[in-house]
């Protein structure tokens, strides 16, 4: 049986976390959700360090860009350099629609870039897309 895909949400804004959670509830997606409040914590989950339970694949990462301590682009940099983690499938979901951010993120081989523009719809649509994605796409 196929193992359930985990979702790592790297997001500092509490409201956005709630938004994601609400969207999961609404879409009745039961996959496990792990929340890291910045890039540093996100890496800790991925590597199982600092007392965090290591997140085993398959998983998807939903990444914000503007965060304290370690931003999304830095996080991407770290992950892509790590021999174990570099295969991770990562979606960026952020408020920045700046072209420079979009380009920089795709440089790091992200799977998609979602702009959080229209309050709640974004979350619903984005997570519905992810639901379809992991149902169809084979993950590492």
């Amino acid at each position: 049986m196929r193992k359930e895909v985990g979702l790592l949400l790297v997001e500092d804004d509490e409201v956005d976390v709630i938004g994601v959670k609400r969207a999961l509830q609404r879409l009745k997606i039961a996959n496990p959700l792990i929340h890291a409040c910045d890039g540093v914590e996100g890496l800790e989950y991925l590597k199982g360090t600092n007392g965090k339970a290591k997140l085993e694949p398959p998983y998807l990462i939903l990444l914000d860009l503007n965060m304290p301590r370690m931003g999304g682009l830095e996080f991407l940099e770290e992950v892509r350099q790590d021999p174990e983690l570099h295969k991770s499938v990562i979606f960026v979901m952020t408020t920045s629609s700046d072209e420079r951010d979009v380009c920089a993120a795709y440089e790091k081989n992200i799977a998609g870039y979602v702009v959080k523009s229209d309050a709640e719809n974004t979350f619903n649509q984005a997570l519905s897309m992810l639901d379809h994605y992991w149902k169809i796409v084979e993950l590492p």
């Binding site: 804004d13 409201v15 956005d16 709630i18 938004g19 609400r22 503007n66 408020t95 920045s96 959080k116 523009s117 309050a119 709640e120």
Partner: peptide, 17 residues
């Protein structure tokens, strides 16, 4: 304007919810 947008969106979401 950029940084103001983020909390504003939060407020908007919260109002929605």
């Amino acid at each position: 304007s950029h940084d103001l947008k983020a909390p504003l969106r939060g407020i908007m979401n919260l109002a929605d919810w």
